[in-house]
Design a protein around this nucleic acid. Structure first.
Lengths: 234, 234, 234, 234
DNA sequence: GATGAATGAGATTTCATTCAT
DNA sequence: CATGAATGAAATCTCATTCAT
């Protein structure tokens, strides 16, 4: 009770207020890590700057928490969609991409790619974490979908390392556009049209052409497989 | 006749600005605007901190100069390629995309998209400039190419506002990958393969399917295969 | 009951600004604006450099606040003295000038004229503010006093624009002397004698000569001389 | 002739260009010592910054030279005027004050008091020099004039230490006004009227009242009043 | 002699972090 | 638990001074 024996409160609350993370994500995405002031984050969350330190031991830890907590719900849903799906690859591709957009692209989580793009160089450890937990899992997910389509004869024989990245690129770009004020400013309400166009164009790029003559189709298919394989050996 | 002792400064005043811009671009791309220390930029350019201020009146002006000076050589070449070209849309698409990659994607200018993505929010005026002088011109360029193909009956009837963005997205992403250490770390030497794949997939997404017999189809197919293989050796 | 260990900061937020302004006035007067280091101001006030910025957003704002806050008590008292006074102009002049000296000249506010003289050129806006709120009001105050005396037939018909300035000049100079170390170094303890002499000489310069006989006039003259001599012994 | 034995030019030119001192005085007076940039001084003088250092080894030395070179012609003339004068004290006082104003107050040398007032605290050595060579000599000069008048029975028996300071104060203030933009902004063309008023008022403050009859005295008084009034219309 | 590009110490200003309350 | 005043390290920016030409 006397002064020198004052109890300190060192514990960190386990239930980190989602409000703090939300506010931090907003500011980090809008201004970048270095240009974000904790004062502003605190104000956005309606708390004092000191309170931030009750939950996060430093600005960097706050960033890590933002990224870690954000991705937990990111990937899981899409993975389970693929496992359970029974229809055609075309339908599956549409479903996965639209679900992803609805869950991620249309939410504030769409700011994550911009954040990681900008800060990867400054936080290698965090970048590695993000790559393993988000990027790699995302690519594997698309690869799984493609492999399933190839095995079912619905998708041409693409390189399963490269194709997912290229296929996913426009989706990522759409998220970047949302958060790059003024750089390729795409109106919010036009993004669904972009999504549609992107999906259809991508499907034309990977689907086995509809069965005019089955034989020809399959031959052509095999050739293409070889071609892609050659390219990838480079 | 000349003094044998090396003078402390041996570079000319007219060489300085570009050296400073080069160093600044490197640091801005690697760390972002706010996290870049002018001390480091100066050191990279082999001058003192104060010297930077002989050429650029503030850190922000340095950033603006970096962006402005970088884009001058960016767009012009591609525009003239399209104007002068006489061949098929397929060949033109390949030529434009490869030229772009060789001139921009493979150079340090490939860092610009990352820089602008990260800093657009903090420098709206600069962002607008970049959009008008780079993004809009780039999109117009691709739209011109598509319109030409549509008129020649070689390219399907795509939306000339949306398609360019989606088509260009993977190219932009490839540049971002180059500079996002650890986020979707694509090995430098695999990028050409990605470029090949991206080009072929995109072509399948926009070209009018060849209405010919299977034989012809196979011939054309073989050609393409060879060409792609060659490209990968680049 | 209270903690026996002294807390690192024991002053309240509401006491701080005035302490900072006091310290700042001292340094600004002693060294001028540009030569004053905020480090030193902070140290004089017993706080860290950063604390200054909690209360004043820049060095210039600090200067403005110093001037603005200093003059509030400057003029008011003298104005009310004049309004309420019922005696002769001679007595009023003595009263006003002595009150002014006691309240301003003898306090640290006496540094203001030096500060404004030195910095007016660099801060035109502040200079205008000072002129309107201090100089003009001061001159009007003296003009009011003179007009009253003229109307009562006690003061000769002086120009009410020029006379106040000339009359007040020695008072201002006395304040400048106090703060101009080494330039016309007048010992602090001699200033009252200067004040006496200044008042009597000024009165001789503006009062209507007593309409008595020449002899009496000379007697009165002698008395005044003695008085001045007495004052100087103060 | 070889590199290590390069002759250096260490000498300082004795004939220090008056242009440099003029430019420096202007800037020092306008902005103060610390806020004056040597770049600007050099530019005003039409030379490069480096050239300044051929003549003055540092900014402080430049200031000292400005002050030292400025005062040489300041005092001498007035001293010789007093020695040679044969007329009344009243005429002498008028002559000295007007000569001083014409030679100093109306020239750019009028900036010196402001400069020294502002910088005395930062350059004690220079301040002492200025006091001894300018202030003290000036006060002695006025004291000599007063003593002469007292001995001739024309001036009342004033304190010869205090009176000169008070008498000279308005003259100094007029110089300060000229260079304190916005603080007691007196229009340049009104200064002669101030000078007239100051001289007449001061004379009334120190002259032995004319030993004539009361009537005559009042007449003379009226004349003086008119004169002052006339002067003010100038 | 004169130049002006270059320097680097030192100033202002910002802001993550601490800690008494 | 929460606060916010205080801190001080580190950044940007300035400018007196130097020196090869």
């Amino acid at each position: 009770m006397t002064c020198p024996f004052k109890p300190r409160w060192e514990r960190r609350k386990d239930a980190r207020p989602q409000e703090l993370l939300d506010a931090a994500l907003d500011h980090f995405v809008a201004r970048g890590f270095a240009a974000t002031r904790l004062d502003d984050v605190a104000k956005s969350a309606g708390v004092s700057k000191g309170t931030l330190y009750l939950y996060f031991s430093s600005k960097e830890e706050l960033l890590k928490a933002v990224v870690r907590e954000s991705i937990v719900p990111l990937i899981g849903e899409a993975e389970s969609v693929i496992e359970q799906f029974a229809g055609s690859s075309e339908e599956l591709f549409r479903l996965v991409m639209r679900t992803w957009w609805d869950n991620v692209g249309a939410s504030k989580l769409s700011g994550l790619p911009k954040l990681m793009t900008a800060e990867a160089g400054n936080f290698p450890e965090l970048a590695r974490f993000y790559q393993e937990e988000v990027v790699d899992r995302g690519e594997r997910l698309v690869a799984t979908m493609l492999r399933r389509g190839i095995e079912r004869g619905e998708i041409i024989d693409v390189d399963l390392e490269i194709a997912p990245r290229v296929l996913v690129a426009p989706m990522i770009m759409m998220m970047l556009w949302k958060h790059s004020n003024g750089v390729c400013k795409v109106e919010e309400d036009k993004l669904p049209a972009h999504l549609d166009y992107y999906i259809e164009m991508s499907l034309r790029g990977i689907l086995v052409p509809k069965p005019e003559s089955a034989d020809v189709s399959r031959d052509e298919n095999k050739d293409q497989k070889k071609k892609a394989a050659n390219c990838c050996k480079t």
